[in-house]
Design a protein around this nucleic acid. Structure first.
Lengths: 110, 110
DNA sequence: CTGATCTACAACCATTTGGTTGTACGATAG
DNA sequence: CTATCGTACAACCAAATGGTTGTAGATCAG
């Protein structure tokens, strides 16, 4: 086994990151606009530290990047993670379509 | 707030379900072939009960369905969950493209 | 310089997660 | 009928998750 452990871990982190509505909202916002960590924190009914942790989870998943600007840390959307997640789901969709085609073939044969 | 709590919870469950390599493998397998719960359990280095729990997580996320056949429970892939997950990532991709277009516009103006 | 702001990080807590073993029960094979 | 198989479910455990408060270091405004 141990097919491609690095990629598997990467995908674990990616989907785990998406599995929280606050984090999904952060991703949407930082894709459209520019936010510091505290700018984001102001949007949610939770502590600054909690939002900071959410951003860290997104960063580890390559869904956002942080860039220091003065005393602020600007959070930006990172297309890389999103693309990887989409690519995986596209693979699954392809497997599904192959399966449907195969069943169609069997029906055509019979 | 409380935009669409049901959908948010649904998405939480969906991405949470994808955030585990064993579960991703189960989804792939049951999309292609037919497996009972114990048939799946035989594939992994963990207990039957553990696999049973993974299947339950996938079922709650609408990624698989179970169907009783004699004393076996047949697990099958369910396109519904996969589609919903893909749809969300497509939305994010669209947001990203809009952002890129907007930047292009600004550059064109300037 | 001083005070306010932004961030990082540690420590703590409750709940969830991913695993285990054990028990029980319906369905099937012999 | 009896033994076995496939499943369900409870109880338990360690680790991870999602939140909190508190402390401390940079950076900026006045």
């Amino acid at each position: 086994m141990v097919v491609d452990q690095l990629r598997e871990d990467e995908l674990d982190r990616l989907f785990q990151a998406f599995a929280d509505s606050t984090r999904r909202d952060i991703v949407r916002r930082v894709t459209v606009g520019e936010y510091s960590v505290s700018g984001l924190a102001a949007l949610y009914a939770m502590s600054f530290a909690a939002v900071q942790k959410h951003v860290a989870v997104l960063e580890r998943a390559s869904l956002v990047t942080k860039e220091k600007r003065g005393r602020e840390q600007i959070v930006r959307g990172n297309h890389e993670g999103l693309q990887k997640a989409r690519r995986l789901l596209d693979e699954y969709e392809a497997i599904w379509r192959q399966r449907v085609d195969r069943i169609a073939d069997i029906l055509a044969e019979g």
